[in-house]
Design a protein around this nucleic acid. Sequence first.
DNA 1: CGTTGTCATGTGAGCGTTAACAATGCAGTG
DNA 2: CACTGCATTGTTAACGCTCACATGACAACG
Lengths: 346, 346
Amino acid sequence: MGAANTVNGRQPVMADVARLAGVSHQTVSRVLNDNPHVKEETRERVLLAIRELDYRPNSAARTLVTRRSQTLGVVSFDTTLYGPASMLYGIEQAARSAGYFVSIASLRSLDGRSVQEAVDRLRDQAVEGVLVIAPQTSAVGALAQVRSAVPVVAVGSGSQARVPGAAVDNEAGARAATQYLLHLGHRTVHHVAGPSNWLDAQARRAGWRSVLADAGAPVPEVVSGDWSARSGYEAGLHLLENPEVTAVFCANDHMALGVLRALNEAGRGIPGDISVVGFDDIPEASYFTPPLTTVRQDFGELGRRGLELLVAQVEGEAGTKERVLVAPELVIRGSTAAAPPAPAGG
Amino acid sequence: MGAANTVNGRQPVMADVARLAGVSHQTVSRVLNDNPHVKEETRERVLLAIRELDYRPNSAARTLVTRRSQTLGVVSFDTTLYGPASMLYGIEQAARSAGYFVSIASLRSLDGRSVQEAVDRLRDQAVEGVLVIAPQTSAVGALAQVRSAVPVVAVGSGSQARVPGAAVDNEAGARAATQYLLHLGHRTVHHVAGPSNWLDAQARRAGWRSVLADAGAPVPEVVSGDWSARSGYEAGLHLLENPEVTAVFCANDHMALGVLRALNEAGRGIPGDISVVGFDDIPEASYFTPPLTTVRQDFGELGRRGLELLVAQVEGEAGTKERVLVAPELVIRGSTAAAPPAPAGG
DNA sequence: CGTTGTCATGTGAGCGTTAACAATGCAGTG
DNA sequence: CACTGCATTGTTAACGCTCACATGACAACG
């Protein structure tokens, strides 16, 4: 052991290790790269020298000659949100176990130029592939246009994106939620949608709508929010104006929280008077008042699957899948119940 | 304009640009590095050739010769949580505007070996500095031991860490919350603390305790949670056993959410019977039932300040500050009110 | 005993860039 | 007109590594 760490005041290089071990630099390289053509005794001498000098290979030099940076890039818009943050986390873990580094670049705005700019930034860093966490239609649209010498994979960007990627089956989740509410006896289900420029919002809305249509239930007007609890609160106030509302399907949990708050304030019983369903199953959802019935999606899994897809492309594996669809799951909690008896004369 | 993008089937290099522009590769390099000793006309010819070939400099080659990777590393434990996610976001943005790339490495576990491992991983990637988002005592302790050839800065790791860093003044925030509750006339304030191995949890608890001590108020036993809403719920159930509780200061908003839920379930009025204060001011806090009085800390700002600190160290600026303390702010909402009249015979 | 093959190791070139220095041209000066 | 000085450009050598190939040793083979 030991931590000389410098040779003549500079970081040790391969030649220093070679000299100390009494071999050529190439033999050191072989040891480092697990080349089988090295005698066991020599290998140990080299490893000893490496430890003695606390030598670390220079990645820039290696990248220069191998043309492989071992780095993947992640482009994202707002990693402050629970979903994107969890996907990023999943990506990093999967990347590490696949032997890649992860470099991040966030988007200034959602237009195509910004997406191209972020991809270029990563390209400047010689990433071998790019993952994009940007579920907005505009970003995905831009993605299809992006010039990139390396593979690009979208994570959590709806299901119809033109680029390869991993996504949750939003429509199926929305259908499950809506069907469940109908089964409880509600005449119809109102919907608090996400921003219309998000693919997920579109898909959830479409799923909700298709179930109502299939069941012959009336399709109420949609109230739109921006995913925030604040916007859910406002949507809730709006829904309160209509006394016929007995069931609400919100496009995410945060908006559902806002809706719950508006209903609570107004003295409506949940689920006695009105049932509420969310989407995402954030960790707090079971501690809302009341605990929220919601559609669980596993963001971490999504990130991991996306990364696997990208690695397969980077390493040029044959028979590469282009799209992975992860199934969400309806989680039933206390915010949903059978429809209240219809008001007399309704 | 144009996107030849390849020369003889490979990425164009500086020599290709030079040939097309009719200059030497060194002149191309000068243009790229804004060297003033280039005639305007030549510069334009070179820029044209660069665009024509869609040439991008090879960062590995540049890093190899300049010994500067333009990359900073971020070590974090769980970027799924709102605080860490926001700090990471702030860091990335500040890094971009300072001209650095950001590479991430998450911790397997919280022991010293894992911290060293993550730092080494980044070091292998030739980062010029490392930011650590790991507010646990164990991680910070390990940090002080970490061997690293590059500067290390801690972000949001309490105020007494031994490494340089940016942190929120947790004690001040906790004092403000506790004082406010006492001013409202509560005889004392109960505390739902975070995990004792987090510096923030320790500091908040210390701030709370000091105010009670100074005011001569009784110091109730602390209930500890793990930051999650679930643990807050359990803490709430525990607090309900004691009828004298009229004010609760929770070490974060998620636990406060759990407490609110437990109290709501038990039919206690908030704030009529019991006042509750949180810490963090997550975006949802104003939509809890009731809206949560809490201590706001600006995580993004924290990340930016930490990054500035690191950049100053990396670029060897004189008079570098070692620590930055960001002041939190008490935000008053509907979950707090004057103490209820003391029960007769109390 | 020469030939062939295989293992273990070394040698030299080259990856694409920047740094240091050299060279050129041209204006201004005495 | 030679001489200095400055602006502009070119030439060459690193940077630290891997790849392709060369070399040497030694066993197996006919």
